[in-house]
């Protein structure tokens, strides 16, 4: 199985000048955990995830930390409203791992070992879709149904 068999051909993306609030709105509707960041030619230059957004509001608080950091919701809301206007370029991963259509199922191993929920798929460095864990599950189940 190749990446082209398990990818979603969706080009949902943002530029590095988008705000974190715009990304949060987009993630909320699109049910994605993160989106590629592209330049004006569609070339992938970064990746911004829900984790990046949360960490922008609570620096140095990892997703695995206990929930003590959320005890003061008033302060948290204030902090979130402040970072909402921050720009993607300041919080994105600037070295995202991208895969290509003809890459094989080693991509799956990589996603699992590196805890990646979404990987951009590129052709000539330009975004042509994404591989997501949820779509991967769907494709695998469909394959097993056909057997």
């Amino acid at each position: 199985m190749k990446v082209k068999d398990m990818m979603i051909r969706d080009l949902t993306s943002v530029t590095d000048m988008a705000t974190l609030k715009e990304v949060a709105d987009m993630l909320s509707y699109s049910r994605l955990s993160g989106v590629p960041v592209v330049d004006d030619q569609g070339k992938v230059i970064g990746f911004i995830s829900e984790k990046d957004i949360i960490e922008s509001a609570f620096p140095k608080v990892g997703m695995d930390t206990d929930m003590l950091f959320v005890r003061n919701w008033a302060q948290n809301y204030l902090r979130l409203s402040q970072v909402g206007e921050s720009l993607v370029k300041d919080y994105m991963n600037q070295n995202p791992v991208c895969v290509e259509e003809d890459d094989d199922e080693k991509v799956v191993k990589f996603m699992l070992s590196e805890h990646k929920k979404t990987l951009p798929v590129t052709r000539d460095e330009k975004l042509i879709g994404v591989v997501t864990r949820s779509n991967l599950c769907r494709v695998l189940m469909e394959k097993s149904d056909k057997k």
């Binding site: 979603i8 051909r9 969706d10 080009l11 949902t12 709105d25 987009m26 509707y29 042509i128 879709g129």
Partner: peptide, 16 residues
């Protein structure tokens, strides 16, 4: 609309 189109090979780039 988006989910149905994604079942094909057509690429999507919608604005939400």
């Amino acid at each position: 609309i988006e989910d149905e189109i994604r079942k094909t090979q057509i690429s999507t780039n919608f604005t939400y």
